[in-house]
Design a protein around this nucleic acid. Structure first.
Lengths: 212, 212
DNA sequence: CTATAAAGGTGAACGTGTTCACTTAAAGAA
DNA sequence: TTCTTTAAGTGAACACGTTCACCTTTATAG
């Protein structure tokens, strides 16, 4: 019997507290040992909770990783979105957002790789969390493109949806490609992304004006 | 004592035969039950081989899948490469190759998804097999682009390496994106790929000539 | 207050991928 | 041939993710 929460909501509070405890331990252990080398039993022991309890709070070990990184990732995204400057080009703003994300992934490339893998391939349900962030991301790019059209950066005939997907493709492939390198450097990832954006912007077909 | 191979190479032959037996069973079971729902024990039983034997032939269950699909995939790739017509544009040839691959993946989308996932994220060693195919793929695209430059389809200033990577990015992201749908249709995947190639070809920036 | 229902918490037990000490048989040396 | 070495083959044992029947505690009904 605890006096801090004398209401009829002790259970709900306990639940949240337990969840937080588990997440804290999970985060620390994942960061320390990596995903595969961290056992659910170790997380249970570290958070002083029964093994089964963890699975009352999280669908599986993957969901645990997603939850452990979710808050930081969401904060990174939100911060990046807020830093969008409307006087800058769509491209500059996009690169800035990508830059922030790459910096975040660089904190722990190994964990990031696992997270990205799960986001891209997870079966059915728990992907919702990451899908939301993807939708946000695509939505923001869409907005940037619209602004870009207004300021003559981008041609009117371009389809925002398709171009947003194009940007996202390059962002994600560059990320995966660089996460597979022995070391992940946000700078080289950005350079690679810029190279692809060059192509997306200028196109590759011969044009009447540039047939030298 | 078998009379068919009386040489001093019985062991080598036995080994190959055992390997083939395992692969045959693995292929059938994977196709029937899917990757996760097929146990290594079931493969061992079906191929009438000890459990440990499988791991003398394959690093792990993932390698088993890669090996099971490798030959078909290699054949698909080779066939697609041979169908390249030099009188067609680089884009048409690329789309044709992608089309063949998408058709192959469509045979068993679930297995394909697992295979692609492993190819993109496998740790360290066994990825070699798939990496080879990737190198081939990139190499062929590179060649197509060079031809494309000769026939004025693609501007000289384009960097083949970067553009080949660009093509590959769209190919792979489209594949993953479509494999995550409830049903995988090569046709809709191709449509999506074409949409992205449109962007890559024409570019999105406003040009002096197209400022309407 | 008591009785009942609901929900959090628990760890033994299970299934499965993977390892390893050992057996067996082929290849090579004497 | 006979002995030695090498490697294929094997399944018991292990580690870990996951499940589930059960317990305990809180919430709710009477």
């Amino acid at each position: 019997m605890d006096i801090t929460v004398p209401k009829g909501k002790r259970k709900a509070f306990q639940r949240l507290e337990t969840r937080a405890l588990i997440l804290e331990s999970a985060k620390a252990l994942f960061a320390d040992k990596g995903f595969e080398r961290t056992t659910v039993r170790a997380i249970a022991a570290s958070s002083e909770v029964g093994l089964g309890t963890i699975f009352k709070h999280f669908e599986d070990k993957n969901a645990l990783l997603a939850a452990a990184l979710h808050d930081d990732l969401a904060a990174t995204l939100e911060r990046a979105f807020k830093e969008v400057k409307h006087e800058k080009t769509a491209r500059e703003n996009f690169i800035h957002i990508a830059s922030r994300l790459y910096q975040y992934y660089a904190v722990n490339p190994s964990l990031s790789k696992t997270l990205v893998q799960q986001a891209m391939f997870s079966k059915g349900k728990c992907q919702t969390v990451l899908d939301e962030q993807l939708s946000d991301f695509i939505g923001v790019i869409d907005g940037l493109l619209e602004k870009g059209k207004e300021k003559q950066e981008i041609k009117q005939s371009a389809d925002n949806r398709a171009v947003a997907f194009n940007f996202f493709s390059h962002y994600i492939i560059t990320l995966v490609s660089c996460l597979n390198q022995p070391t992940f450097s946000p700078e080289s990832a950005l350079a690679q992304l810029e190279e692809q954006l060059d192509i997306t912007y200028s196109g590759i077909e011969t044009t009447p004006g540039s047939k030298r």
